[in-house]
């Protein structure tokens, strides 16, 4: 079948995990759900951008969200750490829980939520400060002032983001002087410095060249040992390479979710098949 052939081209060897764990829809023994949304809806004013999204996001795994532009996958991602709160007139219905706690409950502190759920954006956004100050930003606003501790955190985060060796001698230089790929890894390091449990990535590699993209993908591979990662991507090969579970969004709905391998080789919905074979979208 053409799909299977297409998939074998997608997948890189390192997806060695036997993928015994199953997505909720595929039955089997589900891993612990880190984030769970149930019948979630999202409104920009009166416009409903998401409807009826029920999705479990597993701990220490990579979940990819794919779908055509404007399908709501970024909106969904941003609602997991309440980034959409910044936009006037937005509203969430249904429930979004983090470790069983409703993150849209009245008494939730958004600031502490965002410390647990970090985010990396499509466009790298280094602050116009030194490399060190960029990475130290999160710990500093959390109130950490001890220089030695800060230095440790910055070094650890940069190492995790595979950037340490390139910048260790120029920590005082402006982050704006780094290349695009380095800037994006810096943003990942900055997000890691607050020790989040979950990392949301909104097309983190879409503005990068293939070499930098490969580095980011390797990095995601490393990070999923310790972090729960949700990644929005337009690149289906990328989704296939790095994720365990893939959810396909279309027109504000989640059409299908399943183990990545299964979703790409044997999608249960016609829409999914059309999208991943490039017939639309």
């Amino acid at each position: 079948m053409a799909l299977v052939k297409a998939f074998t081209q997608f997948v890189d060897p390192p997806s060695g995990s036997t993928s015994a764990e199953a997505s909720p829809e595929a039955g089997g023994t589900p891993r612990a759900a880190k984030i769970e949304t149930v019948n979630m809806g999202f409104f920009y004013g009166t416009h409903q951008a998401l409807r009826d999204i029920s999705l479990r996001i597993n701990e220490c795994a990579v979940t990819a969200l794919i779908g055509p532009s404007g399908c709501g996958k970024s909106t969904y991602l941003r609602s997991l750490n309440r980034m959409n709160d910044i936009i006037e007139g937005t509203r969430v219905t249904g429930s979004v829980t983090l470790d069983g706690e409703d993150i849209y409950a009245r008494d939730v502190d958004v600031v502490s939520l965002r410390k647990r759920v970090g985010m990396v954006f499509q466009k790298s956004t280094p602050f116009p400060k030194s490399i060190f100050d960029n990475v130290a930003f999160g710990p500093r606003i959390a109130g950490l002032t001890n220089r030695t501790e800060l230095t440790e955190i910055v070094e650890r985060s940069l190492q995790q983001a595979a950037l340490w060796n390139e910048v260790k001698d120029r920590m005082r230089e402006s982050a704006m002087a780094l290349s695009g790929g380095q800037q994006q890894r810096l943003c990942i390091a900055r997000a890691l410095a607050t020790s989040p449990e979950i990392l949301l990535m909104d097309e983190p590699a879409s503005a990068l060249d293939p070499a930098s993209t490969a580095r980011i993908e390797d990095l995601i591979f490393e990070l999923k040992q310790n972090y729960t990662i949700v990644i929005v991507t337009h690149n289906m090969q990328q989704a296939a390479r790095i994720s365990e579970v893939t959810a396909f969004f279309c027109q504000g709905r989640m059409v299908e979710v399943g183990q990545t391998k299964q979703l790409f080789t044997n999608p249960s919905q016609k829409e999914t098949e059309d999208y991943i074979t490039g017939r639309f979208g």
């Binding site: 600031v111 956004t125 602050f127 930003f137």
Partner: peptide, 27 residues
Amino acid sequence: VPNSLRESGYALGATKFDVSARIVVPS
């Protein structure tokens, strides 16, 4: 100052004052 900088700040757990005083004004 680009909004993306503000959003990055908020995503790191910054309050409005942190974002204003440590990101927007310095930028």
